[in-house]
Structure formats: C-alpha cells, structure tokens
Simulated scan of single mutants.
Amino acid sequence: MTIQDLKDNNLILFEAIAGSKSFGLDTPTSDTDIKGVFYMAKELFYGMEYIPQISNETNDVVYYEIGRYIELLSKNNPNILELLASPTDCILYKHPVMERIVLTDFLSKLCKDTFAGYAATQIKKARGLKKKIVNPLPKERKSPLDFCYILKGYNSIPLKKWLQEKGVAQENCGLVNMPHSKDMYALFIDTNGLLGYKGIIKSEDSNEVSLSSVPNGETESAYMYFNKDGYSNYCKEYREYWDWVEKRNDNRYNTNMEHGKQYDSKNMMHTVRLLQSALQILSEGTLDIRVSNREELLAIKAGEWEYDALLQFTEDHLAAIEQLAKTSTLPEKPDIKNAEKLLVEIRMALYQ
C-alpha cells in the first residue's frame, strides 16, 4: 500500500504540516514535512497483513495507522503528541472521528522519559559528534603492531621503534606465549629467515598477533606486550567514525564546520525545543508546539552558542524537568484501557 492508495481510497483521517513549519522555526530553505493518520480498509484490517505505517522514500511524508497512532500516543511518543498538538493553521485535513482524540487525555509524566529522555540521548550524541569533529581518524587503519610494546627495564618502547633500531623486519620475528601473563610474549629473531617464523602479524589486515614454533635452545631477544584491549577500542572507534563519515549529511556537516562550534547545531536546537515541551507539559498540563522563543532557538541552530554553555543550558533544563515530575498533577501514564476503548469506538464508527 502506498500514500497514493490512501488518497485514492479516502483512507486518510488526519493530515498536517509537521516539522519546522509547525514549530514556527522554518526558514526559506526549510522542507515541508507532512504527517498524518490513516485507517485500513475493512477487508485488509480483518486480513493477515497489518500495516502500521506508510511513508515516502525520503521519510518526510509519514502516515500512521489509527491503531499505531493511539498506541504511540499512549506511550507519550514526542513525534505523535506533537502531531496531535498541530497548530490549526497547519492542519490540512481532519476527519470528524478524530475529534474524539483529545490531547489532555494522553499527557502524563511519561513525557519525562520520552521527551527529556530522547533529548538526553541527543545531548550524548552531540558529545560524540564533537569528539568526531575534533579528533578525526586517518583513513589509513592502524594495525596490531601499533599497539605492541617492548619491555625495556622499568619502561617500554613502541615495537615499531624497537624494530627500526634493531634493523629487523617484523616478518623475521617469532612470538611465543608467556604463561600466566595476559597478552605477553617472548620475541625471537630469525635474522636469516631460515627458522620459518610467522612474523608478529601475518599481514597488514591481521587483527591478531601470530604465534610461531621456536626450536629448543633459541634465545629470546625481548619481551613484548600487545595492548589487545586498546586495539579493540581503536577498531570500534575507527568503524564508528568512518560509518559516520559515510552516512553524515554533508550540507549539515559543512554548516557545523562553518560556524566553528563543533556540534550539530540543528540537532541541538530541536533538543532544546523538546526539553521546553517537556517543561510545558509537566508545569501546565498542555502542549503548544509553536515556539515562543524562535530567535533564541534559531541562534542555537546558527551556532551562536558556545558548546559548553549550550550543554549547561540543557543540563539545567533536565534538572528542572526532574523536579517538576515530582510535583506535577499529571497521571503517571495515560489510561491504557480508555485509550483502547477509544480505538474500538473509532474503528466501529469507521467500519459501520
């Protein structure tokens, strides 16, 4: 089923302009996002295939099946509560049956975990993004050799430096496990290459050091430590960094680099907006998604805030939300039975 199928069969129950235009944060370059609610034709709903959501390829047009919509409302999903709270001038179509769904029936203290919880996740991602921007990783991947060290008295030196000083190739070395010593090895050198040592690593693509069979009577040249945990952490960071480079929005990244504050400014703007929504829900028992501090939020998007000041600002909001959640008169969570009853009534009205 496609969005066009919904329109052709009059299955749309609600449709509204969403995103920055509904928040009052749009600029001349802003896209138009559309979100809505639909219901399945009776024969499809009673069949074996349930369709909870339909969207276009870019995901800027999304419709939720009425059951999924009410389920997410009951979980205080931020996107879905914001859709229900759409400003009148953003609503493109509203079926009369949708009048039965009232915002205040779903607002609860759960928003502390959904709105503020999601915002906290984004703050954590912002810290991670700053780390990626400030500490880019070279495309050339390090090998286990970069994490090996030769013991020298009470100190250690990098293996590569030691090999260079000795004038020895790693391929002419052999390693033997040291008993009862994690990641410690005795290192032997075969200068003439006649003993068949396997080298410290087999190839540049290796993720482990190699062990060799060493003839009896050979004398070790040094003792080597392989920082295996350090190498594993590096591999994880390397993979995450280059995955991020491949998938990042280059226009957004370039904007972040231009303002020089080294954080995803658009993401942080919406993080602050979510925190403000959580404060409003808990303190006033309602939700108005059209922001009253447009200029302040757009200043965050433009990168006019210092990174540390912005993080402190969000931390203060999170602390205020925690306190409000303790005193708010809102229920702990929406009444699931009433939500289910409402859904049954709506379906019965639609299928009569």
Rank of each mutant, 00 (worst) to 15 (best):
residue 235 C to M: 08
residue 135 N to W: 08
residue 21 K to H: 05
residue 235 C to P: 01
residue 277 S to I: 04
residue 234 Y to V: 03
residue 34 I to N: 01
residue 308 D to M: 05
residue 20 S to V: 15
residue 56 N to M: 06
residue 71 E to C: 07
residue 248 R to W: 03
residue 211 L to Q: 05
residue 143 S to K: 04
residue 330 L to N: 01
residue 157 I to R: 01
residue 225 Y to P: 03
residue 39 Y to V: 03
residue 202 K to Q: 12
residue 72 L to K: 07
residue 167 G to P: 12
residue 233 N to G: 09
residue 212 S to C: 03
residue 3 I to T: 09
residue 12 I to V: 11
residue 310 L to H: 13
residue 246 E to W: 02
residue 37 V to F: 05
residue 324 L to K: 11
residue 71 E to D: 13
residue 186 A to T: 08
residue 85 A to H: 04
residue 272 V to Y: 01
residue 348 M to T: 12
residue 201 I to P: 01
residue 257 M to Q: 12
residue 89 D to I: 05
residue 88 T to V: 06
residue 185 Y to T: 00
residue 111 C to K: 04
residue 57 E to V: 00
residue 45 F to A: 13
residue 269 M to N: 03
residue 205 D to C: 10
residue 110 L to Y: 01
residue 153 G to S: 11
residue 138 P to F: 06
residue 262 Q to D: 08
residue 345 E to R: 06
residue 116 A to K: 00
residue 185 Y to M: 00
residue 275 L to Q: 04
residue 27 T to F: 12
residue 296 E to M: 01
residue 262 Q to S: 09
residue 32 T to E: 11
residue 139 K to E: 15
residue 202 K to E: 15
residue 289 I to Y: 00
residue 1 M to D: 06
residue 198 K to M: 11
residue 328 S to R: 06
residue 95 H to F: 08
residue 303 G to I: 04
residue 311 L to Y: 14
residue 148 C to F: 01
residue 309 A to I: 11
residue 259 H to Y: 03
residue 347 R to M: 12
residue 33 D to Y: 09
residue 234 Y to F: 07
